[in-house]
Simulated scan of single mutants.
Amino acid sequence: VISFLITDTLEQEIARNPIGFNTFVGSNINSSGAWNLDDSKVLIGLMEKYGKKPQDIHDELFKMALDRLKKQSFQNINLLINKHRVMWMTDNDILIYIKAGLDGENPSRIDFPWNYRRFNIICNLYYHAMLIFCAIGSFMVLKQLLSGKLKNTSEYFIIFLFIIISGIIAIHMIVEVAGRYHYPAVSLFALVAGYCLCLAGAGIRWPWSRIRGTG
Rank of each mutant, 00 (worst) to 15 (best):
I169D: 00
K149L: 08
L125Y: 09
N115Q: 15
I168R: 04
A135K: 01
I174Y: 15
I136P: 03
A135P: 01
H128V: 11
L131P: 03
S154C: 00
S154A: 07
A170Y: 13
S166R: 02
L145N: 04
C134Y: 06
I132D: 02
I121V: 11
F139V: 00
C134A: 13
I121W: 13
N152H: 07
A129S: 14
Y126D: 13
L146G: 10
L145D: 03
W114G: 04
N152W: 01
M140E: 14
I165Y: 08
Y127P: 09
L125R: 05
F162N: 06
K151L: 05
F119Y: 14
V141Q: 01
I174G: 05
M173T: 15
I158Y: 02
L150I: 13
R118H: 11
I171Q: 13
F157S: 12
I174P: 05
G167R: 06
N115H: 14
K143R: 11
S166N: 08
L145P: 00
F157E: 09
K143Q: 11
Y156Q: 05
Y156T: 03
L131H: 07
G137F: 06
S147G: 02
I122P: 02
L142W: 11
F157A: 10
S138F: 11
I174F: 15
Q144E: 14
I158M: 10
F119I: 03
I132G: 02
I163S: 07
G137R: 06
E176V: 07
S166F: 10
L125D: 09
I168P: 03
I171S: 14
L146I: 06
V141W: 04
G167N: 06
Y127M: 11
N115R: 09
I174A: 13
I163R: 02
I174L: 15
H172C: 11
R118M: 11
